[in-house]
C-alpha cells in the first residue's frame, strides 16, 4: 500500500473513532438548541478532515465514525447502513470541492464554494440515505418522516457544518484573512447570530401559546425552515455584496500591476471608474495618473531615441590636427609637461 493511502486510511480511522464517540455522546445527551436543529458540532469533523487531510479520509471518518457511534449507542453497527454512507458523503464532498482546488481560502469566491459544498454535502448525504431507505430498508414512512427525521438531519448538519467548519479552517490557517474573507466572515457571523436569535425567539413565542403537540412541532418546523432559508439567502446576498465591494480593489491591483509592467491603458478599470462611489473616484484618479505617467514615459523615450549625437569624425580629425600640429601647440605641450612634472 502506498504511504499516502496508508496515511489517509490511518487519519480517517483515528478521526472516525473520535467522531463515533462524539456521536454516541450526542445520541445519549440531546443538546437543546434552535428548533429542530440539534447541537451536533461533531459533523464538522469529517468535513474538516476531508478538506484538510484528504477527501477519502473525510469519507472514512464519516462512514466508520457513524458505524462506531451506532454500535456504542446500541443501534446495531450496520442496521442503519444508509446513514453511514450519508455521513461518509458529508466528509467526502467538501473535500472534493476544496482539498485540491482551493489551497488558500482567501477570496469570497473560495469561501462561497466552501460553504456551498458543505450545504450541498448535507443535502446529498441525507438525500442518499432517504433514497437507500426507500429502496432497501423501509424504516421511514412518507411524508411522516419528513419533519421528524429527514429535515432535522439535514438542517442540523448543514447549520453546524456551516458555522464550525470555517472556524476549524481558520484555526488551521486554511482560511487566510484578507479584506474579502474578513468581510464575509464578519457578515456570516452576524447572519448566523441573528438567525439563531430569531429562531430562538420564534421557539419561545410558539411555546407561549402552545395548543397541541402537533401544532408545536409544526411551528418549530416552520421556524427552522424560515431560519435556514434566511441563512442561505443572507449568505448568497453577502457573497454578492462583498464581491461588489472588493472586486474593484482586485481590479485596481491588477491595474497597478499593469502600470508597473509599463502598460498604461487600463480597460480593466472601466467598470470600476463608472461607479459613483469612493472606489470609482480612486479608479478615475488612477486612470488619469497612469495616463500622465504613460505620456511622460513615451515622450521621454521619444526624446532619448531622437537624441543623436552625430560627429563628423573626419572633420574632427582635421580640426584637431590644425591645432595640434603647430609649433605653438608643441611648445605649449612641452611647457605643460614641465609644469606637471614640477
Amino acid at each position: 500500500m502506498n504511504p499516502d493511502a496508508k496515511k489517509i486510511l490511518l487519519a480517517g480511522l483515528i478521526f472516525a473513532v473520535v467522531y463515533g464517540l462524539l456521536n454516541s455522546l450526542s445520541n445519549i445527551f440531546l443538546l437543546p438548541s434552535a428548533p429542530i436543529i440539534s447541537f451536533r458540532p461533531q459533523i464538522a469533523l469529517p468535513m474538516a478532515v476531508g478538506i484538510l487531510v484528504h477527501p477519502l479520509a473525510g469519507f472514512i471518518t464519516g462512514f466508520a465514525g457513524n458505524v462506531v457511534g451506532d454500535a456504542i449507542s446500541g443501534f446495531g453497527a450496520f442496521k442503519f447502513w444508509n446513514w453511514h454512507i450519508a455521513n461518509g458523503l458529508m466528509g467526502l464532498i467538501p473535500g472534493l470541492a476544496v482539498y485540491r482546488h482551493i489551497r488558500r481560502i482567501d477570496t469570497v469566491r473560495a469561501f462561497g464554494i466552501l460553504q456551498g459544498s458543505i450545504v450541498f454535502a448535507c443535502a446529498a448525504g441525507v438525500g442518499t440515505a432517504v433514497v437507500l431507505d426507500w429502496l432497501f430498508l423501509h424504516f421511514m414512512t412518507f411524508p411522516a418522516s419528513l419533519p421528524s427525521w429527514i429535515l432535522p438531519a439535514f438542517l442540523t448538519d448543514a447549520v453546524n457544518g456551516f458555522i464550525l467548519v470555517p472556524a476549524i479552517l481558520l484555526i488551521a490557517g486554511r482560511i487566510v484573512l484578507t479584506l474579502e474573507t474578513r468581510t464575509i466572515l464578519m457578515i456570516t457571523g452576524l447572519l448566523i447570530a441573528s438567525i439563531l436569535a430569531t429562531a430562538g425567539s420564534i421557539t419561545w413565542a410558539v411555546l407561549d401559546d402552545l395548543v397541541s403537540h402537533g401544532a408545536m412541532v409544526q411551528n418549530f418546523y416552520i421556524a427552522a425552515i424560515v431560519s435556514v432559508g434566511l441563512l442561505v439567502i443572507g449568505f448568497v446576498a453577502a457573497v454578492v455584496f462583498v464581491r461588489k465591494m472588493t472586486a474593484p480593489l482586485a481590479a485596481l491591483g491588477r491595474a497597478a500591476e499593469a502600470v508597473e509592467k509599463g502598460r498604461y491603458d487600463l480597460p480593466e478599470l472601466a467598470a470600476v471608474s463608472a461607479r459613483a462611489d469612493e472606489l470609482g473616484r480612486l479608479a478615475r484618479i488612477f486612470e488619469q495618473m497612469a495616463g500622465k505617467v504613460g505620456e511622460r514615459e513615451n515622450s521621454l523615450q521619444r526624446q532619448v531615441a531622437e537624441l543623436q549625437i552625430t560627429i563628423d569624425r573626419e572633420k574632427q580629425a582635421r580640426d584637431v590636427s590644425d591645432i595640434v600640429d603647430t609649433d605653438y601647440f608643441r611648445a605649449l605641450k612641452e611647457k605643460a609637461r614641465k609644469f606637471r612634472g614640477a
Partner: peptide
Amino acid sequence: RPDQQDYQGTAVTVEVSRALEVP
C-alpha cells in the same frame, strides 16, 4: 548642452585636451 551645435566642437576640444595630457 544637449544640442547639435555643441557636439562637434566638443569632440575637437576633448581630443585637443587629450593631446595636452590633462590629468
